[in-house]
Structure formats: structure tokens, C-alpha cells
Amino acid sequence: MIIGEQKPLEEIKELIGDARKVLVAGCGTCVAVCSAGGEREAQILASALRLAFQVDGNSREVTEATVQRQCEWEYIDPLAEQVAESDVVVSLACGIGVQTLVERFPEAWIVPGLNTTFLGMPQEQGIWVERCQACGQCILGVTAGICPIARCSKQLLNGPCGGSHDGKCEVNPDIECAWHLIYERLRKLGKLELMLRFQPAKDWSVSRDGGPRRIVREDLRVLPET
């Protein structure tokens, strides 16, 4: 899922600027699960903003609304009226949600209330970890299901660098060396020969480096190409 982290209140206030009517829009999917931008967080942020504006001595109108998914037009359509009445919408969705709002409501001023941080999973209560970089050419089949693109600090493809120490990355002892994990898993499963294979230079054109990506599935389309 997509993991996000709320921006500091001061930064959100700055993004709101002089706007009188503020709508805080939560999203009920990924960012709700990681407790960054769901219904609860939208309510808390709206209250915090009301309080902050009160302290600052200027009255503003802060409302909140949460939809199940901000990244699909049919889910955000019910927000149309509230968005139209607002001077600014603080979206607590990931960057995709923010932009879906922008594309659906081109007249509205939409700002992000989150930093979208990574694609990952909850490791334990209160800890989320990165697992995928959406590089467009999955290599998990040869790396024992552990992604060196997302988890090696240098995105190496041919084994651990000289900075691997006691299973930890040279960058930070809190980071596990992805290649150490790959090595250990391949060893236990009797597949170390996979690591001896030379992995050629990666095709980054299918990653973000090739420009914004798009998938067209003709078998699923109903509208003709414009």
C-alpha cells in the first residue's frame, strides 16, 4: 500500500494561507490504514486547525470530509459541492489523491496535507517499511522475493557492496542489508546459484526514468481513443 506521513501543522497552515473556508479531505484507503490521512486524521487535523486559527485570532471555517478512495473519480464526485464552497482543500490523500481532486475539480485550489513517502507495508504496530519502487520490471523472481531496488541503499543488482556488516547497511545500522537477506534466503532454499548470475544493466526506461507511465488495456476500454 501507499504510505504517507502528515506534514507539520505549520507547513499546512502556510499552504492554507489567507483562505477563509478550508476543507480537509481524508481518504479511507491506504493512508487511513497507515493512520496518516483517514477519517480520524482528517477530524483531528480539522480540529487542530480550528484551534490554531482561534489562537491566532482570525476566524476561519474549517470543515472535513472523507471519501473511501480519493484516487478514483466516482468516489470523489460526492465532494463536488463542498469543494466548490471552499477556498482551499487540504487533501490528506497520497499525491495521487491530490491530483485526482485537481483533475476532477479544476476550479478549486487543492494543497497536500501529507508527504507521500513510499510503497510498503506495516511491519509492526506503528512501523511501516518500504518494499517496492514500482520500477516497472520486477526482479523478485531472481532475488528470493526481496527487492534490492527498494531495499538496497545503492540499488545494486549483483550482490552486497563492501559496506555490508553483520547483516546491516553501511548507511545506517537500522537498515538491514537487502543483499544479506537475499543471500541468506537463497542459501537456505538451496538456490545460491541465482546470485552467481550476472545481472545486466537494468532497463530504467520502464521505470520513472522513461517519463510518466501509462498502461492501456484495449480489452478493457469502453471509450474510443481521443
Binding site: 550482490g159 552486497p160 563492501g162 559496506g163 555490508s164 543471500y183 541468506e184 546470485m195 552467481l196
Partner: peptide, 17 residues
């Protein structure tokens, strides 16, 4: 080559690569 980095058993094979 760093013979002292981990995993030690892997290092000769990294050299081979």
C-alpha cells in the same frame, strides 16, 4: 574487493563475478 565485509562466505564469489 572487501574480504572483511559480510557475508564472508559470499566474498570469494563476488570476486568471481
Amino acid at each position: 574487493a572487501n574480504p572483511f565485509a559480510d557475508p564472508f562466505d559470499w566474498r570469494p564469489y563476488r570476486l568471481l563475478k
